[in-house]
Write a protein that binds this DNA or RNA. Sequence first.
DNA 1: GTTGTTAGTGTAGTATATACACTTACATGT
DNA 2: ACATGTAAGTGTATATACTACACTAACAAC
Lengths: 219, 219
Amino acid sequence: MNTPASFNVATDIVVFTIRADTLNVLLIERAGQPFKGSWALPGGFLNNDEGLDQCAARELAEETGVGDVYLEQLASFGDPGRDPRGGVVSVAYFALVPADEHALRAASDAASARWFAFDDLPELAFDHAVILHAAHARLKAKLDYSTIAFCLLPAEFTLSNLQTVYEIIKAETLDKRNFRKWVLALDVLQETGEKRVEGAHRPAMLYREKNPGTIKIIR
Amino acid sequence: MNTPASFNVATDIVVFTIRADTLNVLLIERAGQPFKGSWALPGGFLNNDEGLDQCAARELAEETGVGDVYLEQLASFGDPGRDPRGGVVSVAYFALVPADEHALRAASDAASARWFAFDDLPELAFDHAVILHAAHARLKAKLDYSTIAFCLLPAEFTLSNLQTVYEIIKAETLDKRNFRKWVLALDVLQETGEKRVEGAHRPAMLYREKNPGTIKIIR
DNA sequence: GTTGTTAGTGTAGTATATACACTTACATGT
DNA sequence: ACATGTAAGTGTATATACTACACTAACAAC
């Protein structure tokens, strides 16, 4: 057996949030080669003394200022031609940012970080379009069997807010009564007792998660 | 930004099969350091000119003679201490071998390859115990929402064979009538017309998949 | 006080999942 | 040829989960 090839290992993170009733993805404009000036997923190279999860969290914080959010490993991508420099294997992650935390920061190797509507994306560098669609598929699937969607909302939210998240990601409208019945039967929400007055209409009850940050797997 | 660290990237494959009504896993005895003499998952280093899936399939064939089986990426593992040599990131896969194909081969860097009962495993090298249990969890979960279990059976099988696979992996007994109703309602099987006489009892109808090799996602 | 807008609620029907026991067809042994 | 043992094969009733569907309530704005 001959000596194994060397690779650079990167993490790339698909960061989702909800803004203005659309699903948004965080992209950075590449400051360096290759694909200088192109939009790409935030991410960067793994260091010797850190784990993959740690690397993803660090790069996310460094490049975009996003921290302390839901972060899950998605899949790895290692086709020989995926990076023109060659020898780069990427471990993709996806992250969910609550709808009220949109403060961004640009950093060292990222000229700028920006939110894009998921259905109005620019051309992406590398194989990032593939990664992005894998992340979306995973997110969509997970809505049906977990409470992951709550990570896209602030601590307190209305049932309509939650339904909107589902409708946006699944790209279909849901029946209001059936949705509420379903979500309340999960037994993961509690009423705050407060109401939110938000326009020229009846105020909505506010809810919060019973165990904030806990993802419940359904069925 | 400083120059990125170098890694060796490996694939490790959790190969499942059914033997003698138990779930079995394929392990190799390590011929070289580290963990020389220990049991480990088959796998090996990624070459520069191949993709991850390709690497997993190649290593599986080289080390164990297993080829042309269901192979799916599981997850990646990259904790700094997972390999004493350091700097090794592993992309884990799992594979399903039909119950009738058990011919194994030992190769270059594997002293020997052997099937182990899943609930009677030896100590494993590296973090392979963690990987193995992740693979089992994934397999178990996928039984409920896909037709992946068929990959553990030969081309022709009885409904009892199939039920046994489910019972072994889920580690629970299932009602025969309900199971048959469920699986037939999936509309993925066809009767061969043949029967298998296999003991001092009524012969069982043989079935085959309507679209062999196609994994159907349920729900 | 009228209008517009979203919040909030119930019921009936359909489909799916569960619980449960006996008969059939063969091989084997007498 | 008959009795025995073994796994194959089959149906029905009940409970649970999903679907479809329309009106009233509470507020702001005018």
